[in-house]
Structure formats: structure tokens, C-alpha cells
Design a protein around this nucleic acid. Structure first.
Lengths: 240, 240
DNA sequence: GTCTTCATGACAAACCCATGACATCTTAAG
DNA sequence: CTTAAGATGTCATGGGTTTGTCATGAAGAC
């Protein structure tokens, strides 16, 4: 987890709205170190503009701000359709603590009192983003006598349980998502491995082989089709 | 374990969406005889309205419907948060069988081909409700010879009392809430430890280990499944 | 036949998980 | 208040799986 992609387009975007520059920079630095894309601004009214352009994945909001107050921004976020569920962490100075109820009632998802430890805030950011992440549609994929259950992570062929390693599981999942469709090795690397960067395309062959062996233990027909020069596909005519 | 009062408010509610009235009435009659509360409707778009009002505990859905098709309803159920795990049994005429893959991929939990025997359908209804039930019956979760009572905060395995620390108790509670489902460490941290996410994910391992040791004191089989690279699940096949 | 593409066994490294030990913190008892 | 017992989170260790690569041979394409 050490080397960080420079501009990963999938990285969560975080907006920091904080007028105390030292703090703002500190947070930005640490967030970027964890791979987030960070935007900063100092005034409440500026934040409004940024939020209109394209909402980030999370907002860190100071309570007291020049321009429009943090609490007001939060209220407006909650009122607008596109940002209603946008995770918000509110920062507040000690002494404003009694305002806590009010802060949460406006719709902040979490609440941190200054001074706080950076690791603590990082943890809360992670937690909120984790919770906001759209859950994978849990369901069951099936074709012929082969079944894959995303919820229980179980794979069966006929009556027998099939044991797959994590990679083979994801590979079958991907293939089964669209039976018949041909996936190039590059596409499979992208979907199954995520970081297509430093993995040899031939590795896909090996994993397809392993998947085949696991699925066709005896003399059962091979459900995976090799398309020479193109890639692999789950055989849509399989089981008919 | 299943005899129920006729108008028990806790009785599971079943919604039948079927345009063939004879069949619809037959099913309703048999389901009510087993103590379920039954609602019927004939059109797909009517079903949508009923489902919005208050989701039942199970839906029996005809494939071909006037208005909105069964498959479409199922897809929408799966897309909406509150009904994502709502059990669905799909009815289809012979000849539509080849659409089976599509039906299951949309997220139906079970699939029955007309004509079918009534006892068979009843069995499937029972099976599905049993699987989904633990979520609803507040107070007591059970699977195999393991029992967890939320009221008395007590856990038993067979005849013996199992002593668990608070964390292990909540952990088992969470796992037992949806037997079979795989929970990632992050999800377990959220559910069991709460929002203070400054906890290492590996800590979950330790507590699962402790839970295992407490549950399987002697040579009893381990009811918790480790899914490499994914998380943990209570083994739903446990005790069958 | 020849060249390209794919299948497969072998293997070392990396990875992931189970477990015991331990320091800290909480709770209960004396 | 003091002490003991219990619970909790972290860590280091060790064992088993998984994984990516490579070498070799088989199968297709032309």
C-alpha cells in the first residue's frame, strides 16, 4: 500500500472547508498521503461554488467560517437532491461542544472537536467513506449447473461445493456476469485484478486454467470457452 | 416449531402477484391455512404500490404480468434499499424455462415452474422465510444447536451454556443475523465496534478466534466460516 | 511445416489467517 | 481504596494457501 498513484481517477475526492490555513494544509497533506484527491477552500461562500461544480465524496467542514457558516452549508447540502447523502464531518472548537446536538441535527455524519489527533480524523474519514460506498449488488449468478452466490461467497456445481481462491472467484464472477461475452485479457485484468499495471497478461491464462480445473473436477464439460486471439468467455450455450 | 395463531400480528406477510385468479386464490388459501397473512394483486403496477406501502416478508411473483413484468419488479426490489433482501419466488410457465438464468440473475431467490404441486411451493416458502426470519424475530437467534437470546444476553450450544464477552456476543449476534452471508472485516467493525473506527482490522480475527474457542469447546464442529480474502460468515449449512 | 497462441506443471515469494503472549483498561469484589 | 478478575486491542510468530512467473509442450492458423 506504499506507492501511490499520482492521479488515480477513482480515488475518493475530499473537500476541506477551513479558514485556519495551517490546519487545512495539515489535513490535505495527510489525506493526499492516503491517496485521496483533496480540494481546499477557506470561505463558506467559496465552498458553495465548488460544491455546485461537482460534489466530492466527502466534506470536512469547519463550524465557524467567514462568509457562510459551516452549519449553513451543511443544511443546504442536505436540502439539495444530489448532495443529500454526501458524508460530512464537522470540525468544532472546544467550547462549542454544547452545540453538538445542533450540529448533528443539521445532518453532519460525524463530529470532531478541536484539537483532535490526525489519525483519529483519518479513521473517521475512512469509516464514513466505507459506509457510503455503494454495496455490491449481492445476488446469485447461475448458468447451467454452475452457481455463484455473492452473498455467501459460495460456488457450486451441481450438488458439489467448489472451492476457489479469491482471484478465481472474482474471475468466475466477472465471466458469469455476462455469459457468452468475450473478455480480453486486459479487460479481465482490469476487472479482476484492479491495477492492471504490473501483471503479465499470460497470468490470466493460468488463472483460467485453475478455474477450469476447479470447476471440472471429473469428466464434466468445460464451461469456459477460449477465443483464440481474443480472450475468454463463459460458454452461454453451456447446459442447454 | 411452526404452528401459528390465525391472526398473529407477527405472522409473516406474503404478497402474491399473479394475474391468473384461480391460481392466486389457491395459493392464498393454502398459505392462509398455514397461518400466513396474504395479500394478492393481479397487475405489476399495482404490486409496486403495495410494495411501497409496506414490504411483506416474502413475494410470490409471476413472470408474465400485465402492467409491469415480474422480472422488472424483481429488479426494482433489488435496487431499493429496504427490499434488497426481500425473498422472492418467481413463477414461470414451462417453455419460459430457458429464461431461468435471467430470472436468477435478476435476483429471485427461488424459481418454480408451472404447473407445480402446492406442497412443493409451500415447502419453498417455508424454506425462504426460515432463511430470512432471524432478522425479524427480535430477541432470539438460532442456527443448528447454537442459540443466542438477546433478552437474557445468553448463548447456548446444545445443552451447555456458553460464556461470551460483550464483544464476542455482539459479533455472534451480527453473524447470526444473516447466516451464510459473508461480512467483511470493515463491516463487522462498523456493526460490532461502532463508529470509533480507530481499530485495526486484524483485531476482528482475534475476536473471531475467541468466539470460536468459546463455541467449540470440545470436538464440536466450527460454525464459523473463514472466507479467504473476504471475511467471515456463519455457516448456514451448519446443522443440516 | 512453421509460426503463433494457449495449456499446464513446477516453484518461490507473497500473502493471509490462526494463535499465544502481553500490556492496558474496565469491572467487580473485598 | 485496593486488589483481583476479566475483557480488549495489538503484536510477533508460524503454517498453510494463493499467486505470478516461467519453461515446456500441445493445439491452431496459414
Amino acid at each position: 500500500m506504499s506507492s501511490r498513484e499520482a492521479t488515480n481517477t477513482n480515488a475518493p475526492r475530499v473537500l476541506i472547508v477551513e479558514d485556519e490555513e495551517a490546519l487545512s494544509l495539515l489535513l490535505a497533506y495527510n489525506l493526499e498521503a492516503e491517496g485521496y484527491v483533496v480540494e481546499r477552500c477557506e470561505r463558506g461562500d467559496d465552498a458553495e461554488l465548488l460544491l455546485l461544480e461537482g460534489p466530492p465524496d466527502l466534506v470536512i467542514l469547519d463550524w465557524m467560517l467567514p462568509g457562510v457558516s459551516g452549519i449553513e452549508i451543511c443544511r443546504r447540502l442536505r436540502a439539495r437532491e444530489g448532495t443529500r447523502t454526501l458524508p460530512v464531518i464537522m470540525l468544532t472548537a472546544r467550547g462549542e461542544e454544547d452545540e453538538r446536538v445542533r450540529g448533528l441535527s443539521v445532518g453532519a455524519d460525524d463530529y470532531v472537536v478541536k484539537p483532535f489527533s490526525v489519525p483519529e480524523l483519518m479513521a473517521r474519514v475512512r469509516a464514513l467513506l466505507r459506509r457510503a460506498a455503494p454495496e455490491r449488488i449481492a445476488g446469485r449468478l447461475a448458468a447451467g449447473d454452475i452457481e455463484l452466490d455473492r452473498e455467501t461467497h459460495r460456488v457450486r456445481r451441481g450438488a458439489r461445493d467448489v472451492h476457489l481462491g479469491p482471484t478465481e472467484f472474482r474471475l468466475l464472477d466477472r465471466l458469469l456476469e455476462k455469459p457468452g461475452r468475450v473478455f480480453t485479457r486486459a479487460q479481465l485484468l482490469d476487472a479482476v485484478w484492479g491495477n492492471t499495471a504490473e501483471i503479465d497478461e499470460r497470468t490470466v491464462d493460468v488463472h483460467v486454467g485453475r478455474l477450469r480445473k476447479a470447476l471440472s473436477h471429473g469428466r464434466e464439460p468445460d464451461p469456459i470457452r477460449t477465443i483464440r486471439g481474443a480472450g475468454y468467455a463463459f460458454d452461454e450455450t453451456f447446459g442447454r
